[in-house]
């Protein structure tokens, strides 16, 4: 079980880090631009919210498998197909949790408005400088919410992993799969342990996010 806990934490941490790197520029671009193209990209980003995980799992199984051109390319780089590997799960999680990072970030970026940017520009700050020394510090709350939501959402991932994971200990057997395995093999004592643990953990995390958001709103009013 410890295997599964560590693996799940590793997957959630990596997914959050990768999504921070990908999500910040993407959310910034979505917050700044207008037009149909932007709307289409924004729609694509939100798709994992409504698509069944089995749809995503099915496409990943095909795309990462040895029959697709992408799968063949990845196989030649990594030496083996990415299905049934930890790297495969990371790719799946990044796509699956994308809206959980991009949505809160985009909301914060939009709430900043153009005023601070214009002030920074009159002080001769370059756009990049403005972004790092004005926008990001002002977006602390969105960064935190996005990261936490991505992290917990990755902990709760199940359908995609069931389809492309292959239930390998230490590689793809994450907590939700271990839990499923315990239920199916009637080891309900262990299943209760994981279920109860995850229940408490997600309650605490979501409650903390709510409290932090309220505090920061109070803070900004003062």
């Amino acid at each position: 079980m410890l295997d599964a806990i560590l693996l799940t934490l590793k997957l959630a941490t990596l997914t959050t880090l990768i999504l921070l790197i990908l999500g910040i520029p993407l959310a910034w671009w979505l917050a700044q631009s207008r037009g149909l193209f932007k709307d289409m990209i924004a729609t694509l980003v939100s798709m994992p919210l409504v698509l069944p995980p089995t749809v995503l799992g099915f496409y990943l199984l095909i795309a990462l498998g040895p029959d697709s051109p992408l799968g063949q390319l990845l196989t030649s780089i990594f030496g083996a197909p990415l299905t049934f590997t930890f790297s495969g799960l990371v790719i799946g999680s990044v796509i699956f949790s994308l809206p959980f990072m991009v949505q809160p970030l985009r909301n914060t970026f939009e709430s900043i408005g153009s005023r601070p940017l214009e002030v920074a520009a009159t002080l001769r700050a370059s756009p990049l400088d403005t972004f790092f020394s004005v926008v990001l510090p002002l977006s602390r709350q969105g960064l935190l919410t996005g990261s936490i939501m991505t992290f917990v959402h990755t902990l709760g991932e199940f359908g995609v992993v069931l389809m492309i994971g292959g239930n390998i200990s230490g590689e793809t057997k994450v907590l939700s799969i271990a839990m499923y395995d315990y239920v199916e093999s009637l080891e309900w004592g262990k299943a209760h342990l994981i279920a109860g643990g995850m229940l408490c953990f997600s309650f605490i995390v979501i409650l903390s996010v709510t409290l932090m958001e309220r505090n920061s709103r109070k803070g900004s009013r003062l």
Partner: peptide, 8 residues
């Protein structure tokens, strides 16, 4: 399915 899709 794993073997038929070539993933195994």
């Amino acid at each position: 399915q794993f073997a038929a899709s070539g993933n195994a």
